[in-house]
Amino acid sequence: MKNPTLHDVARLAGVSSATADRVLNRRGNVAEKSVRKIEEAVAQLGYVRNIAAANLSRKRGYHLAFVLPRRSHAFFGRMHEQLQKAALHLKSARVAIDVIEFEAFDAHALEVAVSGLSETGYDGVAFVGLGQRTALMPLVALRNSGVKVVSLVSDGPQDCRDHYIGIDNKKAGRTAARLVGMGHGGKAGRVIVTAGSLDARDHSDRIEGFTAVLEQDFPSIEITSVIETKDQPRQMRALLSERLRGDDGYTSIYNVGAGNEGLVDAVRMNGRDGLSICVVHELSACTRDALEDGTIDVAIDQRPEIELNRALALLQAIVDDLPPPPAPELIPAIYLRDNLPNEPL
């Protein structure tokens, strides 16, 4: 049986093909009675409009914006690089992308970056949320103007975005805690936790999950006060080295965020005596080398390239008022020195 056509919809609804086309492509100026008839005909026939063909006939494209932190560490650098790699394909698909950068963990900088975007004609915007409500008003203004909004990596308030794309950060923290617990082999210990910022929702969610598992299943492992580094390697190196030199009882390290170059330097300078396991987030050239030489033990990789690709597909779908493309839950990859990918980052 052939798929129903626009002509079939118009004939069943008792209207012209031009009227049916106006309704299906949301161009307005059609009586409500006719709109209802066309919608009923669509439902009865199971008609699915060909978005690609409609966009091509109207020479319509997509104008998207990605509001990302600067390339301050490897994770967001990988996102920027993935956008550049996709540029040629996106151009052929009539997708134009602007990248608006802001300083990571700076809520005011995020607010400035998204302010005024509702007046630029974007169809969709993806942003990395800080979990704070500082940028709420400009994001709500975006949605109210008809722009589709997606949060990436770290979620924002639900009333300022349509969808979230990223890993479940509480699960990621719970996974790290399980690895730390297993690394202690039933013995007591002290874990040093480092994070970019407790104000960033992804970091606070990971710490929440991490703490819950240790308290429930490994109560003999104590969590020391969290070191906040703004994900800056130099700050990480200085603060972690100070903690390592002043705490003879530490047995493990868990870095919730980035700044891993500083962590690796600190561990190499201070040695691994007494250290049962060191767990970090994100695979990079630095953490790959550190896995291979035994400086760290586990890298939990969020696979930002997949997040970025999903965001592109999602934005194009919801801009066309289609349901989100089906996709399985995004599960981080757990890398040890034994299962590193052949292709270096």
Rank of each mutant, 00 (worst) to 15 (best):
G28M: 08
A43W: 08
D231K: 13
P69M: 07
R71E: 12
T224P: 08
R337I: 02
G121I: 14
R268D: 10
A333V: 03
G146R: 09
G274I: 04
V150S: 04
T224V: 15
S241W: 06
Q235A: 15
F66K: 09
A317T: 02
D301E: 11
P332M: 04
S225I: 08
Q82L: 11
R60H: 11
L142R: 05
K33A: 15
T19H: 05
A104G: 14
P324R: 13
Q158F: 10
E329H: 09
N55H: 12
T224R: 07
T251Q: 07
E39Y: 07
R288V: 04
T134Y: 08
S118K: 13
M269D: 13
I253Q: 10
G181S: 01
A53S: 05
S92L: 03
P325R: 01
K148P: 14
A176F: 03
T295V: 10
A327W: 04
L275V: 00
R245F: 09
L240Q: 09
D338Q: 14
E32Q: 10
G61Y: 00
R206H: 05
L152F: 06
E40G: 08
A107W: 13
N339W: 01
R22M: 04
K230G: 13
L308Q: 04
V9Y: 00
L139E: 06
H7C: 12
V213L: 05
T194A: 04
S72V: 12
L136P: 09
P324C: 14
I51Q: 14
T229R: 06
G121S: 06
L110W: 05
L240I: 15
K2H: 05
G124K: 02
L340Y: 10
N25W: 01
V48D: 10
E305Q: 15
L117E: 02
D8R: 14
L240N: 05
P138Q: 07
D123A: 06
T287Q: 09
Y250K: 07
E329N: 08
R133C: 12
E228Q: 08
D168A: 05
E307K: 06
K59Y: 03
F105N: 14
E101I: 10
N260V: 07
A266F: 07
A74Y: 07
S16L: 11
E228I: 06
A18W: 07
S118I: 05
